[in-house]
Design a protein around this nucleic acid. Sequence first.
DNA 1: GCGGTGGATGAAACCGATTTCATTAAACCG
DNA 2: CGGTTTAATGAAATCGGTTTCATCCACCGC
Lengths: 341, 341
Amino acid sequence: MGKKTVTIRDIAREAGVSPGTVSRAINNSPLVNPETRQRIIQVVKAFDYVPHRAAQRLSTGKTLTIAVIVPFFTTPSVTERLNGVVSTLAKTQYDLLIHNIEKPEQRANCFRTTPRRDRVDGVLVISISPTDEEVPLLAEADVPIVLIDAQHPDLKRLHQITVDDVAGGQAVTEYLIALGHTRIGFIGDPSDNPFNFTSSRDRASGYRRALTTAGIPYCPEYYAENPHGRREARESARKMLTLPERPTAIFAASDVQAVGVLEAARELGLRVPQDLSVVGYDDVEIAEILGLTTMRQMLFDSGQRGAELLLKTLENPETQPVHEVLPTELVIRDTTGPPPR
Amino acid sequence: MGKKTVTIRDIAREAGVSPGTVSRAINNSPLVNPETRQRIIQVVKAFDYVPHRAAQRLSTGKTLTIAVIVPFFTTPSVTERLNGVVSTLAKTQYDLLIHNIEKPEQRANCFRTTPRRDRVDGVLVISISPTDEEVPLLAEADVPIVLIDAQHPDLKRLHQITVDDVAGGQAVTEYLIALGHTRIGFIGDPSDNPFNFTSSRDRASGYRRALTTAGIPYCPEYYAENPHGRREARESARKMLTLPERPTAIFAASDVQAVGVLEAARELGLRVPQDLSVVGYDDVEIAEILGLTTMRQMLFDSGQRGAELLLKTLENPETQPVHEVLPTELVIRDTTGPPPR
DNA sequence: GCGGTGGATGAAACCGATTTCATTAAACCG
DNA sequence: CGGTTTAATGAAATCGGTTTCATCCACCGC
């Protein structure tokens, strides 16, 4: 099946015009006679002609491509954000390129090679906050960039869609305090991680701030950091829950980790919420299934808004960088209650 | 920041050679003196030069792009397959284009416009079986295509990575029968759906076959089809479990649906597995969390194998179409046991 | 010492579109 | 009716690589 590609010259020859005219005709240039256009369109249809993408890109300088840089994209919360991006872009003619980051070196590599004018028209970055050294690199790339669930103080150059994780962490903790808890544990990701994830760190800040405000001393034994994961969280929870004076509530920095906490509780024979209250973060599907109390964030919407923002910027490059903060909402289910005794 | 792109000619000038030589040097052509290459590489590094993708594509005719067509990519099982694809392709220099299908018309559109020589070098299709009308269209496109978890009898033209869903469904049912169950329900997706998903249908065939073999009459009341989803499965399960003579076991065509069944059981006060046995399919993370007995398929591997197969075919276009059937494995956890009484 | 062989390189064509610039023909105007 | 716009189109340059073909030079064998 040789099936040679039909080029714009074929169309031109067939329609009895020059390639330039064909190009103008299909790109809605006003500089072409309606009749001529009609004839050309006809030939295009007849030949099922579609312009060669690479050729278009090369000559226009536009790539019609948007890249999204995303870490561990099988994580449910990340997938949901990505979903927002994908469904928004599906309505446009932009192609979506996915770069999954699972190792720190991929991250560096990706930040260096992806945001280039000749590769993409714009970049979405999900959940990975660029470092101070990386920002100038990104800015220099001269490609519009939107951070989703990631941040950087340099608002002059980067669009940002975030959630106030400090406030969220604080709200969760205040809720637990209001229930009467004073021994409240926190289980999150490493504050200092090669990906520069910030959300867990920020939620921990909110946690501490709420404790301080309430006059509850911060107890390092009730604070644990682990590489993200259910198992890791379970181990931490187990340790924490076998302390001489165990916490009566645990706030996990994500639903995934909260599940680990629940598992640890089950193993230790602790009833939830009678013996232990557990709160997660994100409100992914599993939270609803397990009846987990959690802080809901608008995951899908964050992706959607980010994509929309990027599209708007592509249309109008003069758009000033925007920093949008999405709301959160505490969803109270079955894993929280007053402390025992 | 103007930042004009540095082209191969810039490198050539700087290194004191011709563009052709630079091209040869960076593409590992043996036709270039090691010293010259060394010098060129140096300049490339110094200028942080990266070849213009569109230009490469145009001149080579290769797009260096692979598209994956995937339905509802937030579904955990689909995400996991996709993960296999992504991680395999990450090691190559191919770009990955994602087309998410959520509506039937997207499907048709996608099959028509995506598999074109000038757009992609190859296509991976996940979980969507092409129809008889679509296959010639795909074949004509003259782009290698690999179906993952999808099938079509025309093995002459399409690579396929599948699981024997009929056998899988049969095995699950036989297991339940061996436990002593005779009233076994099945809850799956619509056999006839606009996406042409076949896995649920096939698992149902296996289910029926096992019943027949065991001499258990097939009872339509124990068989339900719903649009895929937890809630829908829950409703079906509720109906089935409130029958005068309710099933003692339910086989759900996916873990997601099995969760719905578990919810229905909980609502109705049925203990699992004492009163009701539940089996899922896929073995996604939630199955492990909930202790769900399920049929594990190699989700990640299916994506990986599919991608590898596609890459191999790209290297050697003469590769004969392959049909690879991946094994399944019954994972027995806490939701299955002998029937009550 | 000379034709032959092959390695390394440069010059130029080419991929398929877009876009600038030039050209032609028609329309318009005083 | 001559001169000037203006609309429509063609010719050709361009985008940034790759690749073919030609060239040059060194080395080999005789």
